[in-house]
């Protein structure tokens, strides 16, 4: 039964991507009415939403390499849309996660401050590099995506990491909290350590978010859980919530520079939000690890394609 569900999902994933993959590289000659590409984009983002939730991977990290490699839109507009996709998904998820005490405001405030500040730097750097030559961005995006794939494959989250003792910053911002573990009904108290090292990690998160328009949730979780020692549930939820803070500064910059095209951004935001809703309902019925590996495979393919596009192949 499970095998047949997975097979159907696998077939769907590849059928969703195959039209754009087949059309890649020949988009200029392909005669399609104006609504053709936005419609394909809507369905693609819908499936990104479905599979992103099931795989535990944010929409932005899938959207930017796929849309910039397989669609005719310029990478500047794709990155602007990527930021709004991540922002929209994060805003939709935040109320529930905060109410349940899974996302922590006290943990998000300092981390998002560092990331959002460097997202401004990243946004300008990205727009400047793209103005010099879009291939610089396309190529470095390809390399970044391939690195992300390896991080996703080899970084193993820890359910409840051992936290030794917090440092000055942990005390200053009182980074701790309590949540109820639904599977056991027990209250879990948590705090974090190595906060300074974690904050340095968020410098990179912010830069990547600004340069490439990626949500960077994949990196947030790794920093919060593996470096700072937050329980994995807190790390995942706080990461989802913090994206709405991190990406808002860079999103304003892309919007002010005119890099937000409603014909791309609106269908993509609506598509991914609808998809994420369906994905969260399907989640209990599938094996997330198998879906995750499939999505990582697609991501790797998109990274390679992005790199090839940068070299004009």
């Amino acid at each position: 039964m499970k095998r047949s569900i997975l097979f159907k999902f696998g077939s769907l994933l590849f059928s969703l991507l195959s039209p754009s993959i087949l059309l890649a590289g020949s988009t200029a000659e392909f005669d399609m009415p104006w609504w053709g590409w936005p419609t394909i984009l809507f369905f693609t983002t819908f499936f990104i939403g479905v599979f992103g939730v099931m795989a535990g991977i944010g929409g932005g990290v899938l959207f930017v390499p796929l849309a910039s490699s397989f669609f005719p839109f310029h990478i500047d507009f794709v990155r602007g849309t990527g930021l709004f996709i991540a922002l929209g998904s994060s805003l939709a998820a935040a109320p529930h996660l905060l109410e349940k005490n899974l996302a922590s405001l006290k943990l998000a405030l300092p981390s998002a401050l560092v990331a959002s500040t460097f997202a401004i730097v990243g946004a300008f750097l990205g727009l400047w590099l793209s103005a010099l030559n879009p291939a610089y961005i396309q190529g470095s995006l390809g390399v970044t995506i391939i690195v992300i794939v390896f991080i996703m494959l080899f970084a193993k989250n820890s359910e409840h990491p051992d936290v030794t003792h917090g440092n000055y910053l942990t005390e200053l911002f009182q980074i701790n909290g309590i949540y109820t573990e639904e599977t056991t009904g027990k209250e879990v108290r948590w705090t974090v350590h190595k906060t300074t090292r974690g904050m340095l990690g968020f410098v990179i998160v912010g830069l990547l978010a600004g340069i490439f328009g990626l949500g960077a949730g994949w990196a947030n979780v790794a920093i919060l859980n593996l470096i700072m020692g937050a329980p994995v549930k807190i790390a995942v939820a706080t990461s989802s919530f913090a994206l709405s803070i991190t990406d808002s500064t860079a999103a304003w910059i892309y919007m002010n520079k005119g890099a937000v095209l409603p014909i791309l951004t609106v269908p993509s935001m609506v598509g991914i939000m609808l998809g994420a809703k369906i994905g969260s309902k399907l989640l209990p019925k599938v094996k997330p690890s198998v879906i995750r590996n499939m999505v990582i495979g697609v991501l790797f393919f998109a990274g390679v394609r992005s790199l090839m596009k940068a070299f004009g192949i």
Binding site: L91, P95, L98, E99, S104, I178, W190, T191, V266, V270
Partner: peptide, 28 residues
């Protein structure tokens, strides 16, 4: 008492919930 969530967390959640809905309506 050393472990507690920010008391403003639920207020933040309510503001996001309502303003996000307004934003989506205006967008569509």
């Amino acid at each position: 008492s050393a472990f507690e969530n920010a008391s403003e967390q639920k207020l933040y959640a309510r503001i996001v919930y309502h303003t996000n809905h307004v934003g989506l309506f205006v967008l569509v």
